[in-house]
């Protein structure tokens, strides 16, 4: 998803202003003139200046060339592109939201199955790969490296 530099610049200016607003609320300690707000303020100023330069540069360029403010890459003009991206982000979100309750194993198998199917793999192959990949990750991380991946529903079983 391509934005114009002017739009990116405005977003950066807003980020800088947000940082300045937040930094103004950091407590000041008596006798310590340089505190928690110093570097965030310097960085915020950098965002505002950098954003402004991007806006100015883009306006100057656009005056000559023209062009849309937001443009989508070819790949994202079709629903299939969005579906693939949603499946990837959905996999990650599912582990965040459902993983701790249901456990890593079922969420991973289900998520990967959906992703493989969205990428147009045949059902049987997709199911085999989803189970195999999950098992491999579990064995490497939870068994070999002792990473406490959430057990969820399978607590006491695996």
């Amino acid at each position: 998803m391509k934005l114009t530099d002017a739009l990116s610049g405005v977003a950066l200016i807003l980020l800088g202003l947000f940082m300045l607003w937040q930094a103004a609320q950091f407590p000041v300690f008596a006798g310590q003139p340089y505190g928690a707000a110093l570097l965030p303020r310097i960085l915020a100023a950098g965002f505002v200046i950098g954003g402004a330069l991007l806006v100015l540069r883009d306006i100057a360029a656009r005056r000559l060339a023209g062009g849309p403010i937001v443009a989508f890459a070819d790949e994202l003009r079709r629903p299939a592109g969005w579906a693939a991206m949603a499946a990837v982000l959905g996999n990650v979100l599912a582990q965040v939201l459902l993983g701790p309750h249901l456990g890593y194993l079922p969420v991973s198998v289900a998520g990967l199955l959906v992703l493989f199917l969205v990428l147009r793999l045949p059902l049987l192959k997709a199911a085999g790969l989803a189970v195999g990949t999950t098992a491999l990750c579990w064995w490497l991380f939870a068994v070999l490296l002792r990473v406490p991946l959430p057990r969820g529903l399978l607590e006491g079983i695996v």
């Binding site: 990837v88 996999n91 992703l115 790969l129 990949t133 990750c137 490497l140």
Partner: peptide
């Protein structure tokens, strides 16, 4: 790639 990318994603999540 259609097999590799989901596998990489899986490793990213556990990593």
């Amino acid at each position: 790639p259609r097999v590799l990318l989901p596998v990489v994603l899986s490793f990213c999540i556990v990593g």
